[in-house]
Each structure stands twice: as structure tokens, then as C-alpha cells.
Design a protein around this nucleic acid. Structure first.
Lengths: 216, 216
DNA sequence: TAAATACAGTATCATTTGTTACATTCTTTA
DNA sequence: TAAAGAATGTAACAAATGATACTGTATTTA
């Protein structure tokens, strides 16, 4: 197990040695705690008091915006190399913040104690760049989510969604149900079935039970 | 004029002396350049190459998301004490980023050279907190924009919009046209007129030419 | 002051999206 | 293997929003 863990930390080193200074890498390896999450686990929930920030080295995490009435809306995905900057927010803004992160594919993270995050801002230029870039990327992705909601009809949002899924899952053959899509896009299953059927008629996808072949 | 400028810088000192360390205050006063923007001026446009970041000490700035087809959508407002973190993004991500900031009420900023922003992250704890908080607040506001778009009907979005305007303009009597509201909410003037009329019938507002009295 | 322009009110119709209901087929479980 | 459950297809209708067209009235400009 110890071997296994250090093996996984060496995965981290391979991934990050081009962005982080050697000393920072060393600190992260020393002080970060490796953690695994299985599909469906909640990585971040509303009102969580974060003591650690996850640095993702493998897997796929879905970040959602929630409402009071159990409504939810997909915001973006996090992959290896990403950190969950939004983590902080739920503790800072206990009352209102309503972001949730759930694991979409088995995920490995290095959990970094929050107090170090700030230390490293002082000590390492590469960390400053990493953190600021991370915020920028999240802002851009939320900007994209807003563009999609504000300017596109549901059929185009659906196409964008499918293309994004293909990219994230590295496959044109998606294992997904209409209900799951409906949840992510915050609409009803019936509406999604209807639109998917139209896309199939147009030759853009091929439908099966629990699967969609994306042809575009 | 010089007197005027230092007077305005002292406004800055009053506003920030509780959040920033004295040394940081001094650096900002020394190195920041005071700038005024009139209503309607563009503080930040797509593809701008930012050499300075604005720190707002007076006024009101509107931040929009734009589309190719001149469509736009209100994201949030910036007030005194805010900085325009999103500024960076348009230069980093030249191709896609499509945020715009335009001045809603005459605004004064201290323009801070970008190279100092990072220096200060190293030197001043209060600056680290300020910058990180700033990103968090923007993320929260985008989260709110998404909630509004995804979960609310237009009539409720309109009510939220009017309430927010009352708060920002410090008055229940708004000087605004239906067309302007329609632009901000990315819909048509006719739709807004229709919904406003309903709100008036319900006694929630009172309509006049170029003005709306908000009674709730 | 007449003409042009901006703002608002309203009716009508189209489109998009949401809702309900029910049938069919495949898969899992008792 | 029968029964239950999950996933999908589809029709019919409702509601929300968008689009067009035309009105009247206030304001600005020539």
C-alpha cells in the first residue's frame, strides 16, 4: 500500500514537474495526502468546512450549482491537473454558496492543507501562477455556462453537452441515460428524449439503451 | 488638479485603511495612477492587453458577457472597493474570452501596474486575502447569474433585477427604459413591457416614461 | 411649430420548452 | 420464470417566451 501510494505520487511528479518548481514538488509530495474517491462520491458539499484543498492527479469530477428545491445544473468538469478552487467558497460563504462537486470517474487527489496554500503563494512563483490561472479557468468556464444558458436553445446546448462528454470520456460511445442528461441540463427527461430523437433523425447521433453514439 | 488627485487618493486611504497594511496603502498611493471614467465608457474590452488593473474607489461598473452576434447578458456590477479580476482573462485567453466592462455611473479607479500585483502577493498578506476574496466574490456572482438563468422564469429574474438596481442606485426610483432592461436580461423590449405591466397590476411597481418606482 | 425620434402599450401568432399520461422494451430481482 | 423496475418512445396539451405589427404619446430636433 505504501508502495502503491508513492507510486501514485510519482504520477503526480510526472504530471507537474514542468509547471512546479522542484522544491514545491517536494513539499507537495511530503505534505499532501493521497486520497481516492469512487464514482458518485461527494468531493465537496454545501457548508463543508474545508481543511484541505484537492489537487486532482487522475479522474473526473463534476461541479454543479444547486438550488433549494434539489434542482441542479452542471457547471463544469475538473480533470487531472486541476484544483478545486471553488472549495474555499462553501466555507467562506456558508449561508448562500451552493456548489457541489461529485466524482464522475474514479479520482485520485493530493489533499493539501489549507494553511500551506497561502505559504506557497509567498514562496513559489509557479504556485502563484497555478492558483491565479486556476481561478481564471473557472471564471472562463462559468462564462461559458452562462453563454450556453443565455444565448442557446436547448437543442444546441444538448449538442455542446454531447461533444463535451465525448471529449471528457475519450470516446464517441457514451454510456449515459436520458435522465442523467436532463439532470445536468436542468430540464425533463421527456424533453431530452424528444431532442435526441431529432438528432438521430438528422444522423448526428445513434441511440441505444443506456448509450449514445455521437457521430459529429 | 494635483490637489484634486491627492484628495481622491485620500478617499482611497479612508476606504482601505482597515483592510490593507499601511505599507501596502503607501505603495498603492505612490504607484497607482488615478483615472476617471464617464458613464458609458468601456473600462475593459475584448482582447484588450491589460497593463494595469483597476481598483475602484468610486462609481459603478457593469460587467457583461457577450456573444458573436452583439448579444449581451449582464453578469454583475462592481462598486467601490472592488477590483476587476476578470481583467486578466481577456488578455490571457485572447481567442475566446468575451467579457466587457462598461461604466454605469462616473467611476474613479486607481490603476495598478500588473507587475506589482504579483509582487504584492509575496509581500502583503492583506493583498493575498483581497485578491483571493475578489476571485471568490466573482465566482459567487457568476454562480448567482447561473442560478437566475437556470432556475428562474423571466418574471422572477426581472424582480431580482429591479431589486438589485434599487440597491445599486440607492433609490427606489429607477431611471431606466424597458429596452435597457431587455438588453441586460437578454430578451426583447416587448416581453419586458408585458411583464412590467403585470407587476404594475400586482402593485409591485409603478411605471412612468423612463422611470420605474419599485414598491417591493 | 412641424417633423422626427424615442418610449411604451397591446394584440396576434409562432416557437420553444414543460407536463402528464401511457405504451413498449429491456434488465434485474424475488 | 414471473414480477417489478428502469429506460425509452410518443402523443396531447399547457405555459413561457419570442416575433411582428401597429398604436399613441412624450421628447427632441430641424
Amino acid at each position: 500500500m505504501a508502495t502503491n501510494k508513492s507510486l501514485n505520487k510519482s504520477r503526480f511528479v510526472r504530471q507537474f514537474h514542468k509547471i512546479f518548481e522542484p522544491k514545491l514538488i517536494q513539499e507537495i509530495v511530503e505534505k499532501g495526502v493521497l486520497k481516492r474517491y469512487g464514482k458518485g462520491e461527494i468531493l465537496l458539499d454545501i457548508g463543508d468546512n474545508m481543511t484541505h484543498i484537492p489537487l486532482i492527479i487522475k479522474g473526473l469530477v463534476k461541479v454543479l450549482r444547486e438550488d433549494q428545491n434539489e434542482d441542479e445544473m452542471l457547471l463544469y468538469f475538473l480533470e487531472k491537473g486541476d484544483t478545486c478552487a471553488i472549495s474555499f467558497i462553501n466555507c467562506i460563504n456558508l449561508s448562500k454558496s451552493i456548489f457541489r462537486a461529485s466524482v464522475e470517474e474514479e479520482t485520485e487527489c493530493l489533499m493539501l492543507p489549507v494553511n500551506l496554500i497561502e505559504d506557497w503563494l509567498i514562496k513559489y512563483k509557479s504556485w502563484r501562477i497555478f492558483i491565479i490561472d486556476s481561478y481564471h479557468n473557472r471564471l472562463l468556464e462559468l462564462g461559458e455556462a452562462i453563454r450556453s444558458l443565455a444565448f442557446l436553445n436547448l437543442d444546441d446546448r444538448l449538442i455542446d453537452y454531447l461533444k463535451k462528454q465525448v471529449e471528457l470520456k475519450h470516446s464517441e460511445k457514451l454510456s449515459i441515460t436520458h435522465q442523467e442528461i436532463a439532470n445536468d441540463l436542468h430540464t425533463s427527461r421527456v424533453v431530452i428524449s424528444r431532442l435526441l430523437k431529432t438528432l438521430e433523425h438528422d444522423g448526428k447521433i445513434k441511440l441505444g439503451r443506456n448509450k449514445i453514439d455521437v457521430l459529429i
